[in-house]
Design a protein around this nucleic acid. Structure first.
Lengths: 201, 201
DNA sequence: GTATTTCTGTACCGTATCGCATAAAACAGG
DNA sequence: CCTGTTTTATGCGATACGGTACAGAAATAC
């Protein structure tokens, strides 16, 4: 896949009129709101600002476009997660910050989308196994990020960082689901804050 | 809605060739595997063993059929939940049994469907608000059931039963998501068992 | 300047979808 | 038996869908 962030020697023909990352960013909004099955190629192309054949040439079919979007979304999320976990404060404070940032994204108007992995990829898993695999990989990567955060903290060695990470992830999934189903951000933050000491205990 | 479990005086016209509950049971399998958007009326009618117009006459459109199925599924789940929580054993043992039963259902072959509410209703919530509302109501009812279980137990009053219920629910959602994304039943049961003491601590 | 390569945009195809119109079938009451 | 009423079954229709063919446009290589 050619991206325009890396300096590529201009290839011969007509250059692309779009940037891969920008397209993925715009397409993500549609997939996040409607899900993979619910999003039509027309909506996706319109949101991306280009035509179906261009989408096709660049990404293959709808499933590949969705998976590319999912991976892009996941990479960004893990980036943000690592950044917060590597930042200042106690591990409790950093974990609370992780949840707070996630809740802000999950409850953003107008759609309260929750998390793309939990909220839209999971449903497709039985019908589109590759979507399920990609989603599972991303969740594992998120868990690993949390595990690194706990391992680098001054918390007791038991429970093990991996076990804390599983628990912290579980709470994150639950927040994502409840956000998509309409729970208020303030309620979610209260819940998250109540869980931080339990996870770090 | 007329059900045939209640003894109804035979109405005038041609009697129905199906039982509402049986139809919902069969239709549930399709919705659970493919989701609301992914399930076609042809598949649903075929699974139910009747024709589209009959489905229509009985339930209205696809959304109403889905919501009826969801409520039916939810009522059954809450019934099972109450039964286990009212059963013998310590609250820890009963909670472990709840998770174990849920995991068996969530990882059932061939589709590893997870939970219908978390796995298929959540994704539709932004596009079909009534589905989201029904799902949220059901999750609230499940949480209430767990809360009753904790309130009737001999656990300390803090954390409050409602707080324990929120936590126990969150773990349930996480299990449902991970089941649908392919996590093995044994891993899920290990995770659930590790969480029981934390919830009941 | 010309040829070549690549991308864009319009238009199209076959299929599947939801929902319904219409008529036959099954039963209660008179 | 005949009439009225409700449910089944066949089939239709309009739309939307995913995916592609093809011609024109835009850039570079020679």
């Amino acid at each position: 896949m050619r991206t325009s962030t890396e300096i590529t020697k201009r290839s011969r023909g007509r250059p692309r009129g779009f940037i891969t990352e920008e397209v993925l960013e715009k397409v993500r909004g549609v997939f996040l709101a409607k899900g993979f099955t619910g999003a039509s190629l027309d909506e996706l192309a319109a949101a991306a600002g280009l035509n179906r054949p261009s989408l096709y040439a660049a990404f293959g079919d709808k499933e590949q476009l969705y998976i590319a979007t999912l991976r892009f979304y996941g990479a960004k999320s893990i980036e943000g997660l690592d950044a917060i976990l590597a930042g200042p404060g106690t591990i409790q404070q950093r974990l609370a910050k992780v949840y707070s940032a996630a809740i802000d994204l999950y409850t953003a108007p107008p759609h309260r989308p929750g998390c793309m992995i939990v909220g839209t990829a999971a449903v497709e898993s039985p019908t589109y196994p590759r979507i399920g695999e990609a989603a599972a990989e991303l969740l594992a990567a998120i868990e690993k990020s949390l595990e690194r955060g706990f391992a680098a903290s001054d918390l007791p060695k038991t429970p093990a960082p991996a076990e804390r990470a599983r628990m912290a992830s579980a709470i994150m999934y639950a927040i994502a689901i409840r956000a998509r189903l309409g729970t208020k951000a303030s309620d979610l933050k209260a819940f998250a804050n109540s869980m931080v000491p339990t996870i770090c205990g």
